[in-house]
Amino acid sequence: MAVLVIAEHDNATLSDATAKVVSAATKIGGDVDVLVAGKGAGGVAEAAAKIEGVRKVLHADGDALEHRLAEALEALIVPLMDGYDAMLAAASTTGKNFAPRVAAKLDVMQISEIVAVEAPDTFVRPIYAGNAFMTVTSSDAKKIITVRTTTFAAAGDGGSASVETIDPPAGPTKSSFVGEELSKSDRPDLGAAKIVVSGGRALQSSENFEKLIEPLADQLGAAVGASRAAVDAGYISNNHQVGQTGKIVAPELYIAIGISGAIQHLAGMKDSKVIVAINKDEDAPIFQVADYGLVADLYKAIPELQDELAKVGFAKV
């Protein structure tokens, strides 16, 4: 039994999602190898070699892999799967993009966004926006799996695996990278933050997001999230959306402000350890999942919250 984990990274830094996927792979059992596919990603390969439980790191480097487009990853991974019984990737927009291509090429039904490993062939995954948890057994010879990383603890960093260089796929493919606009932010990453402050439609404008939600987040060292309604209304960019079709988060503390709590939003945050809801509508569904609910007008509550937090050691920034 051998499992191939596809590393999540940006050519410079290894995402901690990778160690979480390794932890899911360890639960399946057998030897766990990590594939680092990128351009100039030698440092990432070295970092992957330090993850505990990893047997070896395969490192493929080349122009075709710089942006980890699905077609190039498919070309790289499909032949490698001769030597593996399972492939695991994070259920990120990268993993969701390439994994089904690999599965289709291998004539395998992919198992998406698993939250638990029950046996080497049996997995639990949320369906219907997390309103049901389905346990499935796969009869396919090889398993192609994406992993919801918020539900697995990261593997430790005491490993010392060897790094083996392999050839990148031959180009060109029928898709090419044109450009990207990545949000630059000093705030923690939404997926990894210990505290998330999220705003909803009640914020009413992008100015209010900047004036109210962002300073509160900065005071707490928190990431900024948003409901779909707020993103659709243009108050904040799409990469802040928390929910069924946005990001799935599970921080220590999730503060939902002016968010009513639609099913699809709850699907993205209800595994948070502690949930705080501030909403002026006392019947808002968000209060049904909140550990602490405050019925209040956010325009009054946020400045008060900033003052109270300052008193307990969170200086305003």
């Binding site: 395998v108 039904m109 198992i111 029950e118 049996t122 949320p126 369906i127 997390g130 309103n131 049901a132 948890f133 389905m134 346990t135 499935v136 057994t137 796969s138 009869s139 396919d140 209800k270 949930i275 006392e282 209060f287 049904q288 999942v289 909140a290 550990d291 602490y292 609910g293 405050l294 019925v295 209040a296 509550a301 008060e304 919250l305 109270e308």
Partner: peptide
């Protein structure tokens, strides 16, 4: 290719308490 072993309710999250003030 996948056989469903079971479909269960997700772990329930109980509503907590309402607080009276920001403090």
């Amino acid at each position: 290719r996948l056989s469903v072993v079971k479909v269960a309710e997700p772990p329930k999250r109980e509503a907590g308490v309402k607080v009276e003030s920001v403090a």
